[in-house]
Amino acid sequence: MLAIVAVLVLVVPFLPGFDTDTQDLGDNLLAPLQNPAHLLGTDALGRDILSRLSVAVRVSLLVAFGAVLISALVGTSVGLTAGYFRGRIDTVLMSIGDIQLAIPVVLLLIVLVATLGSRPLLLVVLLGLTDWVGYGRVVRSMVVSLREQEFVQAARSAGASGFWVIRKHLLPNVLSQVVILAAFEIGVVVTIESSLSFIGLGIQPPTPSLGLMINEGQRYLQSNPSLVFVPALAIFLVIGGIQFLSQNVGVRRSRSTT
């Protein structure tokens, strides 16, 4: 599934006739496979859907990778700090996490985007900062048990500082879990971002985005369902591909460790 996505993002931009923006009102709402110049047809403004799809997936993935990077970074740092030092800082950080978990992410993002705007970079940061709790919790629970392990006690007894223990022992031991979680979260963030774009609060036109393509296509559901189908399939390939991948990796890991 991810292979199709890779072709879409990496190869399609180099095909002849790649053009996201040129409008051709005479050739609008073409169905797929009817015109060799527009393999997947054209939208209401006569723009090439294949080209727009390629860019939209690229944008979605870039936003998701950026956001996941931020949230993994923040969540892992929080988890390491809370789990290693425990005490009041643990209580405070995890309470913040609990509160954030209790707020519907999409709603929170809607309010944030409404007040702060939706420039792409800001969107990445906001998505990243609203999705760290999962990492924080996983890392914290691993660290809580790791820090009691005897190799950590031995390192401390040899004079290791908290920073040394975290950097040399705890971080390397939680990293593989963080990577697995991050792979899964890319799918989650793509979902959230496309939901935001769907209601017009995510990626702003004229930049193509999957959510917005579906929103525009919704109006032609009766006459041209492919306008919804094509981006829908792309979203499914991206999220489903990532989910199956991360699940398989997870299963294989749990088999190899037992």
């Binding site: 496309s194 579906i214 559901l221 009766q222 919804v228 829908a232 979203i235 499914f236 989910q243």
Partner: peptide, 22 residues
């Protein structure tokens, strides 16, 4: 379940509308 979770809710809703209403 995995397949279902790979489709964002809003998208699933539109697909249901397409099939059952349209």
């Amino acid at each position: 379940a995995t397949v279902r979770q790979a489709i964002p809710p809003y998208l699933f809703g539109i697909l249901l509308i397409l099939v059952f209403s349209v």
